[in-house]
Design a protein around this nucleic acid. Structure first.
Length: 428
RNA sequence: GUGAUCGUAGCUCAGUUGGUCAGAGCGCCAGGUUGUGGCCCCGGAGGUCGGGGGUUCAAGUCCCCUCGGUCACCCCA
């Protein structure tokens, strides 16, 4: 075993699996572009403060899961644990705010969590996401949630649930937390050990607990939804109605309390029902009206979401939306060129390059192997035809065309007729 | 961070109570066809049995440590 292998919790994504990711990313780009989102690329590491201020310093993600390190100048850096904070930082840093215009950005980025890996959870994974900044209009929530749902739906994904909830704004949530704390004080001894010890830290998290005792207690707890201020209530009603009007199916989940402090009002999450693992959330997001200000910018409301690529791949595979040929359709050899004896090198080279320039996927065998060996390689490459160029063909300035996927017999044709012949074959 | 489980060729795995146990299938390379793939036949390359230490006349097999994989908890995409 080679002593050098990928670090714990990381993975090399190789073909053909990488082909699925190409498709997922390409498809995402296509969909969000139509809505005016443009790519933003931010660094994989940032000053730790960006995350402690954005996500919240007592959040578990920040306290124990952040991949932190000191750089050579002693700066405290962190590999980004999520995608939003960096985009917001860039938004502030480059003054991208425009009075009457919504700033829209999408990204595809690696993200890091220093945790023990398990099914559907790595130390490095990749997220596709987008952020829209500049208005508190619920129509923007509808657009963002709708884009995420459209994306998943257009992939052919069906077996998932869109859960949605409102966290209220900072004010009405504060009031609710007081109420919830009073409730939890009364039921403290009924809660599981984990939460009963620390619910004061973030009482909302108790809604997340899967332990039966906590589920029981929380079923009688006050509901955030019922204690929203009028404005937040209206906002939420507009969002859900808008999604309904567009035909999106969702469930309102009182228990959906997302992990980051910055979320306000709309929060949502996509959970795959095709995944049997403990990690079935394929994506999530929400509104974060206080985040830009918390990071030192001018108060600007915003909404966004992130989707875990690896989990999306797991979920989509579990649903069987891919056919075996999906990834190879992205990169399969059309034509395989075979050369016999070194005298044919020049002709092979010219044919290979001219066919590639004409748009075909072309490969060849290297290392002067036997015709038999080259044909075997050609066969395995999946190419539809092999072109054989030996001394005879060089002499006559021709190529021998051998169909590999049909019973048609091979034929010889002049090189100047090659492109014409190929377009004949491939237009079928 | 805690717990469980696994670690033998590129891949999937077999190796009986420690004693020809260094193997199979697939893959790869080559030959069977002096210029013809797929099927078939034949041959070949490739492993300090994750690493280190210990017990023993003898360790892939038992013990300890360590490193990795997998899964679960915590938490999250």
């Amino acid at each position: 075993m080679n002593p050098l292998s990928a670090p714990i919790g990381t993975k090399d994504i190789l073909a053909p699996e990488s082909g699925y990711l190409e498709l997922l990313i390409h498809h995402f780009q296509k969909i969000v572009r139509r809505a005016g989102y443009r790519l933003v690329v931010t660094p994989v590491f940032e000053d730790v403060q960006l995350f402690t201020r954005g996500i919240g310093s007592d959040n578990e993600l920040v306290t124990k899961e952040m991949y932190e390190f000191l750089d050579k100048s002693g700066r405290n850096m962190a590999l980004k644990p999520e995608g939003t904070a960096s985009v917001i930082r860039a938004f502030i840093q480059h003054h991208l705010s425009e009075e009457s215009k919504v700033f829209k950005a999408w990204y595809c980025t690696p993200v890091f969590r220093y945790e023990r890996p398990q099914a559907g959870r790595l130390r490095q994974h990749h997220q596709l996401g987008l952020e829209a900044l500049g208005t508190a209009d619920p129509e923007l929530d509808i657009e963002v949630v709708g884009l995420a749902a459209s994306y998943l739906g257009s992939l052919g994904l069906k077996n998932y649930t869109l859960n949605i909830n409102s966290m209220g704004d900072l004010e009405c949530r504060m009031g609710f937390i007081k109420l919830l704390n009073r409730f939890l004080d009364h039921h403290a001894d009924e809660l599981c050990n984990q939460h009963c010890k620390r619910y004061r830290l973030n009482p909302l998290r108790v809604f997340d607990c899967k332990k039966q005792e906590c589920v029981d207690v929380m079923s009688t707890a006050p509901k955030l939804k019922e204690h929203l201020c009028d404005k937040c209530g209206e906002h939420f009603a507009t969002v859900t109605q808008g999604l309904t009007d567009l035909g999106f199916v969702y469930e309102i989940s009182d228990k959906l309390v997302r992990g980051f402090d910055y979320y306000t009002r709309t929060t949502f999450e996509f959970n795959s029902n095709a995944l049997n693992t403990a990690q079935n959330a394929i994506g999530g997001g929400g509104r974060y009206d206080g985040l830009v200000e918390a990071l030192g910018g001018q108060s600007t409301p915003g909404v966004g979401f992130g989707i875990g690529l690896e989990r999306l791949l797991l979920a989509s595979s579990a649903e069987g939306i891919w056919s075996d040929t999906t990834p190879s359709a992205f990169s399969s050899v059309d034509i395989f060129v075979i050369g016999l004896e070194s005298g044919s090198d020049k002709a092979v080279r010219e044919v290979v390059f001219s066919l590639r320039n004409a748009g075909y996927q072309v490969d060849q065998a290297f290392g002067s192997r036997s015709l038999k060996a080259q044909l075997r390689t050609a066969d395995r490459s999946g190419a539809l035809v092999a072109l054989i160029i030996g001394p005879k063909e060089v002499e006559e300035s021709s190529v021998t065309l051998k169909p590999l996927r049909s019973s048609e017999s091979q034929s010889q044709l002049p090189r100047e007729k090659l492109l014409e012949k190929m377009s004949e074959i491939y237009s079928k």
